[in-house]
Design a protein around this nucleic acid. Sequence first.
DNA 1: GGGCTTGTTTGCAGGAGCGCAAACTCAATG
DNA 2: CATTGAGTTTGCGCTCCTGCAAACAAGCCC
Lengths: 233, 233
Amino acid sequence: MLDVSLIADLPPFEGLEPSALADLVGKARPMRFAKGAHVFAAGTDAQLFFLLLDGHIRVVRITPEGEQVIARYISSGELFGIAPALGMTVYPADAIAAVDCVVLAWPSSIWHDTVALHPGFATNAYKVIGQRLQEAQERIVEMATERVEQRVANAIVKLAQQTGKQTREGVLIDFPVSRQDISEMTGTTLHTVSRLISSWEGAGMVKCGRQKIMVTEGRRLERLARGDRSQVD
Amino acid sequence: MLDVSLIADLPPFEGLEPSALADLVGKARPMRFAKGAHVFAAGTDAQLFFLLLDGHIRVVRITPEGEQVIARYISSGELFGIAPALGMTVYPADAIAAVDCVVLAWPSSIWHDTVALHPGFATNAYKVIGQRLQEAQERIVEMATERVEQRVANAIVKLAQQTGKQTREGVLIDFPVSRQDISEMTGTTLHTVSRLISSWEGAGMVKCGRQKIMVTEGRRLERLARGDRSQVD
DNA sequence: GGGCTTGTTTGCAGGAGCGCAAACTCAATG
DNA sequence: CATTGAGTTTGCGCTCCTGCAAACAAGCCC
């Protein structure tokens, strides 16, 4: 049996009564996914919607030509795969575990009754969707107006803010991210990302390893993301 | 007094009972906007949500540096400015009448009661949001993976499909679109757009004038949008 | 009609970033 | 411990696209 405390303090369930929480937990099924496993695949029947309890999940779109684009990373405590909320019957993208993950899954069929029964949950869920839409729009603006250097800097800053773990030396992104991953988030090549990160490492703004990025001077990176190149020299 | 027939056949109200339609129409206020007028401005209080009855509306984001990016065009029959649906209290973008427009406006305050009262309307509205989110994601993929030529071709094809009027010579986009507008939809410069369109006009795929684009050979444009350059020579 | 504004075309030089190729490094695995 | 394979770094040439500049139409207003 699952405990209400699993979800009680998470943002999607904020403001819900204990009885509502118990109802939701009661209908949920816990699932585990090993690193690299698909939680769901683009185009398949959206039979479940999910809450990430632990881990990190990469949401990816693949073009007809086989190129990958990373739509976003899901952190623990977030809802994802909520296709039913938008009247969609298939998942629009792939969701892949970036590390070993624990999720709760609900049948999509209960979505409508659930939001009707727990209006607070509906409000929270739609707020999340609003934020994602906003985020997507901002990314379009970014792709349309900023240079690669700014976009890469921004992507790393955001990852650090979203999922960074403070260490003695700086903020460490706490799941494996390759140069290729960063390039797929920013619409460039792993080569360019590597060149940029190398130069930043030389300037002491980041410390990196294999699939590992630690931000040591967030301020300077943020300045780069804004397009300020005055200090690059 | 407004008549139910104004909205009865529009997609957002599909499947609603006559009484629901009457209720909605009764609470709506008709408004007119002259070409170039702001329907709402980014960052202002989202006091109303809208339905476009006639005209075309351009939704625009402006960067801190003053660059514009066109998020989308709204065609008649579409809902827009539905910030309350996503728990937002301010509009996230500017909405500007591309031609003289007629809209219906409802107070945002009635959103929650309305969707509770008319679940069919809620479903339709969230479907629209889902489509917009999808569209935004697809545009991100496009910006990340396709070259300028493809994006511009695609933007014109979509405009023609969305709002094109069939004429004897081809499909005419039936509101004024400048080269600059196209560039703001695709993340390039008006110069590049002008060059591309000129060459397409030379190849007989489009016929253009001042703020006027007519697609004469959609097939070839679509092929360009897919990245097929075999016939360019 | 004359002058002005706004949109469009075109040329040219330069640069950002890509594609290809090759070397390197680390980690895992038998 | 050796080997393999995935991830990373780096160099070089090239291309697409931009940025700047200037000339050119086409409405629009007096």
